[in-house]
């Protein structure tokens, strides 16, 4: 408001351009750097490995968080959704149930977490941060109690388990199955968030909840849907995780939280309006995965990787918020 509108708009769009391309340029620089630094980085085998092991599961969780963050909320309990789906899935398979029952049970467990979040947020008017924080506490306790303090459950044998493991590790037309799952989910979430009526309502709630309510939008219902969808997507990751490692390791889902939030916010810096978007989030996940993998290949150990990722997320947040502040 302080400068003339024209001037302001052009400056803002220039900054938008800068923000957009600075991340892309950084992205390209990182890829080039690692290709030079490590001969194995750009090999198909390595990229395949990155895609399957570092991208797919994180990306699916991040898709869910993208929906929640678009609605103006946050879900700190995505890890719980991952874990609960993983736990029930593995328990059912271990008890000899078929794969269909296992998947249904796992998704059902995630659904319950989502519904719990939705009730706390829309019925009891608890802020998303506190509600999902509380669910995070309770979810951790539940897992510890169910596994006598965090003992992993392994799927030693059994038809269903092997079948799932096989699916997780095979490819369809040369594309790994988990990647196909991701592509399908990404397309669905993209259409939902950016093309559907529901997505428009989500954006409106995120931009100004009062306006959404005054426009006749059923805010509580839409918000419940947002949290249920997020939990379900995290549940899919939980099942993929268990199918891949043939086990359930308690409290392992929390590792996704920071990376998924980071990826979503990297994505917002890429979008013109600085809003979360599916494509942005996927690029964010890819960036994080490539940096992690590259750091590993050039010899950084796991601990330094964590520092590196933290610094990267910090810098992206700084760029995103700093530019937003400068634009106002």
């Amino acid at each position: 408001m302080s400068v003339s509108a024209n001037d302001n708009a052009s400056k803002a769009s220039m900054r938008g351009f800068l923000a957009k391309y600075s991340v892309l340029i950084a992205f390209a620089a990182i890829v080039i750097f690692f290709s030079v630094a490590s001969p194995t980085f750009l090999t198909p085998a390595n990229l395949f490995n990155v895609l399957v092991n570092n991208v797919v599961m994180l990306a699916i969780v991040a898709l869910g968080l993208t929906i929640v963050i678009s609605s103006g909320g946050i879900d700190l309990s995505v890890g719980v959704s991952v874990d609960m789906a993983s736990m029930i899935f593995v328990m059912l398979l271990a008890a000899g149930y078929s794969g269909v029952v296992g998947v249904a049970g796992g998704l059902g467990a995630a659904l319950i977490v989502g519904i719990l979040n939705a009730i706390l947020i829309t019925r009891l008017n608890i802020s998303p941060f506190l509600a999902t924080l509380g669910v995070l506490f309770i979810g951790q306790s539940t897992q510890q109690l169910a596994t006598s303090g965090g003992q992993p459950i392994y799927l030693t044998s059994g038809y269903a388990a092997d079948q799932f493991n096989a699916i997780a590790r095979t490819a369809l037309f040369g594309i790994p199955t988990p990647v196909i799952v991701l592509i399908v989910l990404a397309v669905v979430v993209h259409l939902l968030l950016h093309r559907s009526v529901f997505g428009r309502y989500v954006q409106a709630m995120g931009a100004q909840p009062g306006v959404a309510w005054y426009s006749g939008i059923r805010v509580p219902r839409e918000l419940s849907m947002v949290h249920v969808l997020c939990a379900l997507l995290a549940g899919v990751t939980g099942i993929l995780l268990s199918a891949t490692v043939k086990s359930y390791v308690p409290l392992s889902g929390n590792a996704f939280l920071l990376d998924a939030i980071g990826a979503t916010f990297i994505g917002t810096t890429l979008s013109r309006e600085r809003k979360p978007s599916v494509i942005g989030t996927l690029l964010g996940v890819l960036l994080l995965a490539i940096v992690k993998n590259g750091l590993l290949l050039v010899g950084w150990n796991f601990y330094w990787q964590q520092v590196g990722i933290g610094v990267l997320v910090f810098l992206v947040l700084a760029a995103s918020f700093g530019l937003r502040r400068a634009a106002h």
């Binding site: 428009r200 954006q203 409106a204 100004q208 009062g210 306006v211 005054y214 939008i217």
Partner: peptide, 15 residues
């Protein structure tokens, strides 16, 4: 309550 400042003219009008 009237308009969402962070949404476009189009998104506001059709909301």
């Amino acid at each position: 309550h009237g308009v969402a400042l962070g949404l476009s003219v189009r998104e506001n009008i059709s909301l």
